[in-house]
């Protein structure tokens, strides 16, 4: 039995003289919104009342203090995602409230600190989310750096890339619902592989495109911005996929996934300028990010249910290849960048 609940505590002070219709109105709203099992009421002398409802959702209590123009109420609901917004706005609309004080509390397992409730399998999901989120921002920064190396004017490129990237991620999140992915874990794997290919090769693509389209500035910049959109849309798929995978395990896990996603983003934002850019060339950074992404992909294979062994082998093979190429890229960074620069950027003369 799930213990996750929310508890609303509301203090209401009225601006007009006391009217008994107010408590009635609140009771009407409660009657309509929830399924009442049993009502208990006690009237005090000379005035004031206490009302208690047992709801199938939990309970509701109300105390009125007519001499103080004050009503106090409690609603306890056994649904972790229940929102009191509609209820409160209705109460606000019908009563002449002068002052309102509200608190919502989490109850049950929902109220425990997050750390005490992490389970092993969930930890894998969260670590994955962290790396995926970090990679996602790293791709974005890599693309901005890419654009500014080829087209110059880095401040301008960073401004444009950030907007385009966030918008493309939004587009990805929207398309996600249209596509209706059946096997979420499999889909995540495929998305990661595509990201590794496009993201890892993006600086190489940029330098080659630049050598071909050097005199066609508009065409070159269209291609380079297209690359941002592709990687942005692919990254946009990741978070909804991860949240759906999390939701399947436990409703509340989706929120934690979201939180971890933001922490991963912050981590990448610090890592990129302070460590990656000073230590590696743009090709090296791309290989490192692709490598991190490959590790995530391979760790996911265990969770996929395959139709046959052939398919399973294929998945392992693809991710092993990704890791190999990323490793090759990282260890031979200097050779590769030297070759690319002299062949494509400087051009033989």
């Amino acid at each position: 039995m799930q213990t996750d609940s929310v508890h609303l505590i509301l203090d209401l002070w009225m601006s007009e003289n006391w009217s008994d219709s107010w408590v009635k109105k609140i009771e009407e709203i409660i009657d309509r919104e929830f399924s009442v099992v049993k009502k208990i009421r006690h009237d005090f002398e000379p005035h004031g009342e206490t009302v208690a409802y047992i709801l199938s959702e939990s309970h509701f209590t109300l105390h009125s203090y007519p001499e103080e123009n004050y009503i106090s109420l409690d609603i306890y609901i056994c649904k972790p995602n229940y929102s009191f917004v509609n209820l409160v706005s209705e109460i606000e609309e019908f009563l002449p409230i002068s002052k309102i004080n509200n608190r919502t509390m989490k109850r049950g397992e929902y109220a425990l600190p997050l750390l005490t409730r992490w389970k092993n399998a969930e930890l894998v999901l969260l670590v994955t989310t962290f790396i995926v989120a970090a990679c996602s921002l790293l791709y974005e920064l890599l693309l901005a750096q890419n654009l500014s190396t080829v087209l110059g004017d880095s401040a301008h490129r960073y401004n444009v890339t950030i907007g385009l990237y966030i918008a493309s991620m939004g587009l990805g999140a929207l398309l996600y619902n249209k596509f209706n992915f059946q096997d979420k874990i499999k889909s995540l794997f495929k998305v990661e592989i595509l990201l590794i290919v496009f993201g890892g090769l993006s600086p190489i693509a940029a330098i080659i495109l630049d050598s071909i389209l050097r005199d066609h500035y508009i065409l070159l910049s269209v291609f380079l911005h297209l690359l941002i959109i592709i990687i942005g849309v692919l990254s946009g798929f990741e978070l909804p996929l991860l949240m759906d995978i999390g939701k399947k395990k436990r409703e509340r896990l989706a929120t934690i996934v979201l939180g971890v996603d933001y922490v991963g983003t912050l981590f990448a934002a610090i890592l990129f300028p302070l460590l990656l850019v000073p230590l590696f060339s743009i090709f090296g950074i791309a290989a490192i990010v692709a490598g991190l992404n490959s590790l995530v992909a391979i760790s996911f294979i265990r969770l996929i249910s395959f139709k046959n062994n052939k398919e399973k082998t294929l998945y392992y093979l693809v991710s092993a290849m990704c890791i190999f190429f990323a490793w090759y890229g990282i260890t031979n960074e200097e050779k590769i960048s030297e070759y690319l620069i002299s062949r494509y950027f400087l051009g033989a003369r």
């Binding site: 920064l141 901005a144 401040a155 960073y158 950030i162 922490v263 912050l266 990448a268 990129f272 300028p273």
Partner: peptide, 15 residues
């Protein structure tokens, strides 16, 4: 240092 400030600022903003 464009790269440093742009990266850190977008990261902290998103966080």
């Amino acid at each position: 240092n464009v790269v440093l400030w742009h990266s850190l600022t977008i990261g902290i903003y998103i966080a």
